[in-house]
Amino acid sequence: MTPGGHATRRNPAAGLRLHGSARRAVRPRAAWRALAGAAVVLLALLGGTGTAQAHDSLESTFPANGATVATMPQAVTLTMSNTPAAIGAEIKVLDAGGTNWAVGAVSVLDNVATQQVKPGAPAGKYTVEWRLVSSDSHPVGTGQNFTFTTKAAASPGAVAGPAQPAQQVSEAAAPPVADSGGIPWSVVGLIGVLVVVVVAMVVVARRRLGQAD
């Protein structure tokens, strides 16, 4: 009632306008909820993919890092946590003057990579520089050098180490592998698919809210 005794009338249209505004306010919130849910799924999948595709690691070497051996072995070996690829592998056996005494291509047997050494390598300290292609197709080993010292030069009867050469790959068939240093293509594809899914979810949510008006 008004002060003059007249009854007030409510405007139904005003209520409808208010109700419609509330619905429109819900639209961005629903879209953001869908986007946040998809982001959580994306992060979980990326975390699992990163763990599964962790690079292989070096477990041991022959000779051992920092070891002193009686004579230069016929070969040096690297034992990895998984089987590396033979193609693209490179191992250098460098003396104090920087001369590379490695000969032939790197051979791989299971998870052991073997590099033969030229006969006549002098006594002294050697640095082994290596680069292998991890089982997840990424290069590993750059900057992970190891050293050893020999008391005598290499001889024909020297021990070759714990593994014998296998899967010999010629140098011509072993082109250098570019270090992508980034996200594997499988992960890139997964991200693309999830982006499409998120967009589709937002579009569907907007259409449903529009039909509800």
Rank of each mutant, 00 (worst) to 15 (best):
Met1Lys: 13
Thr2Gly: 09
Thr2His: 07
Thr2Ala: 11
Gly5Glu: 09
Gly5Lys: 09
His6Leu: 14
His6Asn: 15
His6Phe: 10
His6Gln: 14
Arg9Asp: 06
Arg10Ala: 09
Asn11Lys: 05
Ala14Thr: 13
Leu16Glu: 12
Leu16Ile: 14
Arg17Ser: 12
Leu18Phe: 15
Leu18Cys: 13
Gly20Phe: 13
Ala25Met: 07
Arg29Asp: 14
Arg29Ser: 10
Ala30Thr: 10
Ala30Met: 05
Ala30Cys: 08
Trp32Ser: 09
Leu35Thr: 14
Gly37Ala: 14
Gly37Asn: 14
Ala38Met: 04
Ala38Leu: 01
Val41Pro: 04
Leu45Phe: 10
Leu45Glu: 14
Ala52Ile: 07
Ala52Lys: 10
Gln53Trp: 05
Ala54Cys: 03
Asp56Tyr: 04
Ser57Cys: 07
Glu59His: 09
Thr61Leu: 07
Val69Ala: 02
Val69Asn: 00
Thr71Gly: 02
Thr71Cys: 00
Val76Lys: 01
Leu78Glu: 03
Thr79Phe: 02
Met80Trp: 08
Met80Phe: 07
Asn82His: 09
Thr83Arg: 08
Pro84Gln: 08
Pro84Arg: 02
Ala85Trp: 01
Ala86Thr: 12
Ile87Leu: 13
Ala89Cys: 07
Ile91Arg: 00
Lys92Ile: 11
Lys92Phe: 12
Lys92Asn: 13
Lys92Gly: 10
Leu94Pro: 06
Ala96Phe: 08
Gly97Asn: 10
Gly97Met: 04
Gly98Val: 00
Gly98Gln: 05
Ala102Glu: 03
Gly104Arg: 00
Val106Tyr: 00
Val108Asn: 05
Val108Cys: 11
Asp110His: 08
Asp110Thr: 07
Asn111Arg: 13
Asn111Glu: 15
Val112Pro: 01
Thr114Ser: 14
Thr114Gly: 06
Val117Phe: 00
Val117Pro: 06
Gly120Asp: 09
Pro122Gln: 10
Ala123Glu: 06
Val128Ser: 06
Ser135Leu: 07
Ser135Thr: 06
Ser137Leu: 05
His138Leu: 07
Pro139Asn: 02
Val140Ala: 03
Val140Ile: 13
Gly141Ile: 02
Gly141Ser: 06
Asn145Trp: 02
Phe146Ala: 03
Thr147His: 05
Thr150Lys: 01
Ala152Asp: 13
Ala153Pro: 02
Ala153Lys: 01
Ala154Tyr: 00
Gly157Cys: 04
Gly157Thr: 06
Ala158Phe: 00
Val159Cys: 00
Pro162Met: 01
Ala163Ile: 03
Pro165Ala: 09
Pro165Ile: 03
Pro165Gly: 11
Ala166Met: 08
Gln168Pro: 11
Val169Gly: 03
Ala173Met: 07
Ala174Thr: 14
Ala174Ile: 05
Pro175Thr: 11
Pro175Met: 05
Pro176Cys: 09
Pro176Met: 08
Asp179Val: 08
Asp179Gln: 09
Asp179Trp: 08
Ser180Leu: 07
Gly181Ile: 05
Gly181Asp: 10
Gly182Cys: 04
Ile183Glu: 12
Pro184Asp: 06
Ser186Pro: 00
Val187Tyr: 01
Gly192Glu: 11
Val193Lys: 08
Val195Ile: 12
Val195Leu: 13
Val196Cys: 08
Met201Tyr: 02
Val202Lys: 01
Val204Glu: 08
Arg206Tyr: 12
Arg207Gly: 02
Arg208Asp: 15
Gly210Pro: 01
Asp213Val: 08
